[in-house]
């Protein structure tokens, strides 16, 4: 489920800006790190979740305002490379200003593990699952049922038309970064008790979320949902039935197979711009 959130984070930015944001994993890491710091000062979990998500949204807005929208004569490729630079920068800043250690975070629920029909797993998986379900639902509702959400979709479908109808495209892109930062941080903060927090924890999540996007079809949110679930389930199955040391391989194997068979992804958005 966590990959669904990462994949949606990628999609939100990609669909409005056509930029693949390789700092998406770092949004997760920042969410986890900020939560860890706040919890150290005994701030309640709910509040630290909220604060870390808002702070990361603001970081995302800054990235868009000062780096992305100010880059002169930018094309998509140079902006994508820029996001790789940003990702390295964020990791560096955290490694220096916090540290490079892995920090545990206690489970959100009062009990550590649950048993279900003979299987025992961390109670945090329930939290991750619920968070993801709620976020996915809210995000879909926003896009499909609110005027603001439709405007955001309009920008991704036909940017020129949107601006001819008075939509401030730059503002919509900034909003996309903010939403993506918020979703990313919440994902990072809820997965933290399972994965620990560390300055480079975002790398693998980012890459696997990227794989989920590719599998589902970049820019397609249903694709993100399905792609994220496929990668997540395949990973747990391979850990269970083969060996957990091959776990990381599976996501990329699936991605490569999909790229071979259907390069545009399972849910490739049918020529969105026929204009």
């Amino acid at each position: 489920m966590i990959y669904v959130l990462v994949a949606i984070g990628f999609n939100v930015i990609y669909s409005t800006t056509k930029i693949v944001n390789f700092a998406q994993g770092e949004f997760l890491m920042l969410g986890g790190i900020i939560e860890f710091i706040l919890l150290k000062y005994s701030i309640p979990i709910g509040i630290s979740l909220l604060i870390s998500s808002i702070v990361v949204s603001i970081v995302a807005i800054f990235i868009h305002k000062f780096l992305i929208s100010n880059t002169k004569d930018a094309n998509e490729l140079s902006l994508v490379i820029m996001t790789i630079g940003i990702s390295i920068l964020i990791k560096g800043v955290i490694a220096v200003s916090v540290d490079k250690d892995a920090h545990p975070i206690k489970h959100f629920l009062p009990f550590k593990s649950v048993s279900l029909s003979g299987m025992t797993f961390s109670s945090q998986y329930i939290v991750v699952m619920l968070t993801a379900l709620i976020l996915v639902f809210l995000f879909y509702f926003y896009l499909k049922n609110t005027l603001n959400g439709k405007i955001m979709q309009a920008v991704s479908m036909n940017t020129l038309a949107a601006s001819l109808f008075g939509v401030n495209v730059n503002m919509e892109q900034m909003k996309a970064f903010a939403i993506s930062g918020f979703i990313g941080a919440l994902a990072g903060a809820t997965i933290a008790p399972i994965s620990f927090v560390q300055y480079d924890m975002g790398v693998m999540f980012g890459l696997k979320g990227f794989a989920a996007c590719v599998v589902g079809g970049f820019g397609n949110n249903t694709g993100a949902l399905v792609g994220g679930l496929i990668i997540g389930i395949a990973e747990s199955l391979s850990a269970g039935y083969i060996s957990s040391s091959y776990k990381d391989l599976v996501a990329f194997l699936i991605m490569i197979i999909v790229l071979f068979v259907k390069p545009s992804g399972l849910f490739s958005s049918k020529d969105v711009e026929r204009v």
Binding site: I151, M157, N158, F165, V272, V275
Partner: peptide
Amino acid sequence: IVYVPDKRTIFNELSVYENLEISAWE
């Protein structure tokens, strides 16, 4: 001022109604 360019200003994946809603969002 309205400008209808030679390229279409429609949003393919949205309904006709939603297309009109978006153009009149203000």
